[in-house]
Design a protein around this nucleic acid. Structure first.
Lengths: 336, 336
DNA sequence: TTGAAAGCGGTACCAC
DNA sequence: GTGGTACCGCTTTCAA
């Protein structure tokens, strides 16, 4: 900038005005300066500008478990979209399910003076780093809350979604349902399992009610399903707790040749192409991400306030896998 | 930092030493300072530090078309992983297929003094912004090259991958193949179409060879497929140009009840669960991302050099959809 | 082992 | 309209 100024015979301040589009520079001078800027390939130094104006860098930080998981990548896409509408950039990082990494990433983002922080937290209890972050910038917990933290939360309507899944299966006269959730350490897995039990109880469905959480491998999960479909009172329909589990369950049903009603939590690519097409509780991850970003900016402009929780409704997308499937013996008789 | 120093009765420089883990501070002083840092909740200001040391912010920029597309999100995940091993953060943004947005994002990333830039470029010709970026930092073109740019490129082995797809179908005695590519404006679509034609020609397969590029809608694509499977010389097998097209083709084959051999370029979730399981050219997007990130850092340490192109091999994953499917009439006879 | 002072590239504030 | 100058928070350099 000093360089540009020198070559144009004007002060550094005038150049600054041009660069920032401020008023008070004659058109002629401005033009000359602009040409010089291009000629010298001048690049404004964001960091230096922040330093004096003591603002925040126009970036929003995002921490998720795994950027490759379609659920999280769609969250990221929604956030990025919303953030960029406001001339900000998204800095995203994977915590890889490690609480330590999570804390380190929070510190790193804070040091880079992000405008806000969106996090899919690993633990239900606040870490020191997370608490510190809340003192500096607006923090939004996405998909899972953290108790006693001064941060907004944007959550899926787990209870409503799970209820719609169970009601759907009950309406198709499934009686013995099972729930298969992801790793027990994940808040949504617990939450959805609880919601499943509530729904089953309130509809008065008969037992035994199977409801288990992971961690699973493809084969341990398949074994569990096989176990549930044997015996005098076999499970007739399954509700899965998220996309990871749904895919694994589909694989198991194919490999072990199981006929089970199915409703998955989370929509996924090809849900309409597998056979039968899978009925799912759709949670609009892009929308969740957008909502979280909006929350950051609204908190930014409205200042401190009591933390609020936004619950984003889900939608049951019926595709057929929820129908009652006749036991094999019966079906064979019917066909012949 | 000045604050911490004042309260400890030491100079700002001493605090700086402690914060940066430099030697030359007595253990006692260091301890006192560290406590004060925690007590005051001191946060180091990355930007200010950069300013004086005139280094680059420890971040790598990534620009893709669409973060929600699993191919790109897996690239991002690979990059993030590799970048974080080196204590950097990833700033990612979606260009949404707009060249103008792409340029703006490049400028924004440059202004933030990223260490390097990884881009899935929209155009095959360099824009001014992209050329400028190459003068400042290492730039890597991922998935698609840009001609005459002083940047490394990391590409999938489109030619080899496509050849393995065509050979596989030919080995299963498919004779009339068709290629369905994504939007014609995308370099890989063109490249894979050309590779398809070469492979078909070199294997001496008879015509007519159908080979078309998008843009497609689900229904225009389905219509095209229906057209190709009619007439005296119907197409018996299809090669698709990327995951988007594969999914759309699968939907079409299901909705319109088409029996076609299929090999898809790009692996995808559930490729093993749909029926028949889809044989694909697997390109390891996470690996591509990692390779690109490595390229940034290797260029950073080795300094300027002639731009190099890294071609990452593909792997044909055979799952069954490449088999020859008997025409409907014949098959019906055989079964009864 | 410690500190003083200059300066990184901008912006704020006020004078001309 | 334009320029001068202090200063943002930190690192560098050199002196104590």
């Amino acid at each position: 900038m000093a360089d540009v100024g020198a070559r144009c015979g004007v002060s550094i301040k005038t150049v600054s005005r041009v660069v920032n589009g401020e008023a008070g520079v004659s058109t002629k001078t401005a033009l000359r300066i602009q040409q010089m800027i291009v000629e010298l390939g001048f690049q404004r130094h964001e960091g230096a500008s922040l330093l004096r104006s003591s603002g925040r860098s126009e970036t929003v930080g995002l921490i998720v478990e795994d950027l490759a998981n379609p659920f999280y990548s769609q969250l990221a896409a929604g956030i990025e979209r919303e953030v960029r509408l406001r001339q900000h950039l998204l800095v995203s990082a994977s915590s890889e399910r490690s609480s330590e990494d999570e804390s380190q990433l929070i510190e790193a983002l804070l040091a880079r003076r992000v405008t806000g922080l969106i996090i899919v937290p690993i633990g239900a209890e606040p870490t020191d780093a997370l608490r510190a972050a809340c003192l500096e910038v607006p923090v939004v917990c996405l998909d899972r809350p953290v108790s006693g933290l001064d941060a907004d939360a944007v959550l899926s309507d787990n209870q409503g979604g799970m209820r719609s899944a169970v009601e759907h299966l009950a309406a198709h006269r499934h009686e013995r349902l099972a729930f298969l959730g992801d790793d027990a350490s994940i808040w949504t897995a617990q939450r959805r399992a609880a919601a499943f039990r509530e729904a089953v109880a309130s509809l008065g469905l008969p037992g035994p009610i199977h409801c288990e959480l992971g961690p699973w491998t493809d084969s341990s999960l398949a074994d569990r399903l096989v176990g549930w479909t044997r015996g005098r009172l076999p499970v007739t329909a399954l509700v899965t707790g998220n996309n990871r589990v749904t895919l694994s369950a589909l694989r198991a049903m194919q490999d072990r040749d199981l006929d089970l009603g199915l409703v998955g939590y989370d929509d996924f690519d090809l849900s309409d192409v597998v056979s039968p097409p899978v009925t799912v509780v759709h949670q609009d991850p892009v929308g969740l991400g957008e909502r979280a970003a909006q929350q950051v900016f609204s908190r930014l402009s409205s200042g401190r306030a009591t933390p609020m929780t936004v619950v984003v409704p889900t939608r049951l997308v019926v595709r057929g896998s929820g129908r009652l499937i006749a036991p094999k013996g019966l079906r064979a008789q019917a066909t012949h």
